[in-house]
Design a protein around this nucleic acid. Structure first.
Length: 210
DNA sequence: GAACCGATTGCCT
DNA sequence: GGCAATCGGTTCG
């Protein structure tokens, strides 16, 4: 049984690239009326501020990206291609934009529920990809802004669909970094991090070791 | 308001 | 390997 205690806000109030790397090996949890699910984070990507043309914060604060400028340790969820919900963790101090996209998990707990939501078998691809893990964990746009840290009174009053948090875990034996997936701008930046020994990656890594 | 685009996936050939 | 599905965000007129 992996640890369940949520990482503190201080973990997220750091350099986005460092948070992306350090999230590998941690455990992502979701709790909904349907049950609890958890998985080991094996792939992440860092998205920075206006200096990063691939980031949603590249053109400054907009209604969608505003949350990336806000306090760290909250969920940033957006809809991509009109059908997939992607989960990010907001990073950096309040006022500084940054987020880490969670791209793949090794399923640990709640496999039945994940399979049910994904309408597929319990194969390695169950949570291998941001859209796939979003579907498997039951994440949708209502989760946007939900704190990933210990629940506050405010969130308890405002939020009903479910709850999401990340617990610490041992770092992988190896970490590989490379270009982000599906990104054309700033393609040279090695802002993707993954555990090359995991069988649950969205795409195989073939870039530098860290 | 209209047009275009996208941090994806699954199904088709 | 190609491509459709599908819709909120962003930009432009």
């Amino acid at each position: 049984m992996p640890p369940r205690r949520p990482l503190a806000q201080g973990f997220y109030a750091r350099d986005t690239v460092a948070v992306a790397r350090d999230l590998l090996g941690c455990t992502l949890w979701t709790q909904t009326p349907g049950g609890v699910c958890a998985g080991r984070i094996v792939e992440t990507e860092a998205y920075l501020d206006h200096r990063d043309p691939a980031s949603h914060a590249a053109r400054g604060r907009t209604p969608r990206s505003a949350i990336m400028f806000g306090p760290p340790g909250v969920a940033y969820v957006y809809l991509i291609y009109g059908m997939h919900h992607c989960l990010n963790a907001v990073t950096e101090c309040d006022g500084q934009a940054g987020a880490v996209l969670i791209r793949a998990l090794e399923p640990l707990i709640g496999l039945d529920l994940m399979v049910q939501r994904r309408k597929t078998g319990p194969e390695r691809s169950l949570c291998a990809g941001p859209g796939r893990l979003g579907r498997a964990l039951g994440i949708d746009l209502d989760w946007n802004g939900q704190p990933l840290t210990a629940s506050s009174r405010k969130s308890a009053n405002n939020f009903t669909p479910g709850r999401v948090w990340i617990a610490a875990g041992p770092a992988p034996a190896r970490v590989v970094t490379g270009p982000r997936v599906g990104i054309r701008r700033a393609a040279s930046e090695p802002h993707r991090f993954c555990d090359p020994d995991s069988a649950c990656l969205s795409k195989p890594p073939h870039f530098g070791r860290l």
